[in-house]
């Protein structure tokens, strides 16, 4: 239940709009600088609008970053799909098909969500080189494995919220475990899949640590390429900003179009907490 609109609350728009500006400042500066010509790049005029629209920065940034943008997609899509599928299966088993010890195992899986990856980085690199897994496949593997805790958690919570009667009825009708999963749970898990797919896509796309350790410059995903481009000093700020925009665009688009979905899942989950 919400508080109803009361008279006298309108003044709250002043701080809200002020805060909205604070959240938009970096985006504003990114876009404005991205459209400026090289001559206009000066700290003194950083707030000014560009004199003209210079798309060539974006063209230049794209030509520099396009291989790594492609790498990112190539890595993120399988990583997202595989870890979501695994999470759904694990969540189903942990929620509805509890075996002995399932409740002991779950907290241990959860802890994996929080570990600083620096504590497993050396063995991971050693393992990858011993197993001969290089570049993007290695990165996909890392995202799938270290994504298991979060995807399992999300699906488990969703499946556990479904009434047990749903499954029992199917069992009485003679459905076995896989049948129940395939014909009863899977069709109604679409909302959870959207939440997990968005989540995994965003975190794999935005990941930097695994990417910088596990890939060489041919396989760099966008975050590493952008960071190295920005750190090189040779590339002008307007091109860096255009590149930043390109790197931010895919997750931003997902957020804009599916963000409500995502937030609904986030808030729906926390309401029960």
């Amino acid at each position: 239940m919400k508080t109803n609109l009361r008279i006298g609350k309108e003044w709250l728009y002043i701080p809200l709009i002020f805060m909205a500006i604070f959240y938009l400042i970096p985006m504003y500066v990114m876009l404005v600088t991205g459209f400026k010509s090289f001559a206009e790049i000066d700290l003194k005029t950083m707030w000014n609008l560009p004199n003209g629209i210079h798309f060539d920065n974006f063209v230049e940034a794209y030509s520099k970053l396009s291989p790594s943008l492609w790498n990112s997609f190539l890595m993120v899509i399988p990583a997202t799909l595989i870890s979501s599928a695994l999470g759904s299966l694990n969540g189903f088993i942990l929620a509805k098909w509890k075996f002995k010890g399932a409740d002991i195992i779950f907290p241990f899986i959860l802890f994996g969500m929080f570990i600083p990856y620096q504590s497993i980085l050396i063995p991971l690199v050693q393992f990858m080189s011993a197993a001969g897994i290089k570049g993007l496949p290695g990165l996909v593997l890392a995202h799938v494995i270290y994504g298991i805790p979060i995807t399992t958690l999300t699906f488990r919570n969703y499946y556990a919220s479904l009434p047990q009667e749903l499954l029992e009825a199917a069992k009485i009708d003679g459905a076995d475990m896989l049948g129940i999963y395939r014909y009863i749970l899977l069709p109604i898990s679409i909302p959870s899949f959207v939440v997990v797919l968005i989540w995994q896509f965003t975190s794999a796309w935005n990941d930097f640590l695994f990417a910088v350790i596990l890939t060489g410059n041919k396989e760099w995903p966008i975050t590493v390429a952008l960071n190295n481009m920005a750190g090189s000093q040779i590339i002008a700020w307007n091109v860096q900003m255009a590149g930043s925009f390109l790197a931010a665009l895919p997750p931003l688009l997902i957020y804009i179009f599916l963000g409500r979905y995502f937030l609904r899942g986030l808030l729906a989950g926390s309401l029960k907490g």
Partner: peptide, 24 residues
């Protein structure tokens, strides 16, 4: 609207945030 606006930075990579804030 405000809620989405306050939440959107979450979707962006720390690297992008870092590059822009370095300029800021």
């Amino acid at each position: 609207f405000f809620r989405s606006l306050f939440l959107f930075p979450m979707a962006i990579s720390y690297i992008v945030t870092g590059v822009v804030w370095r300029w800021l």
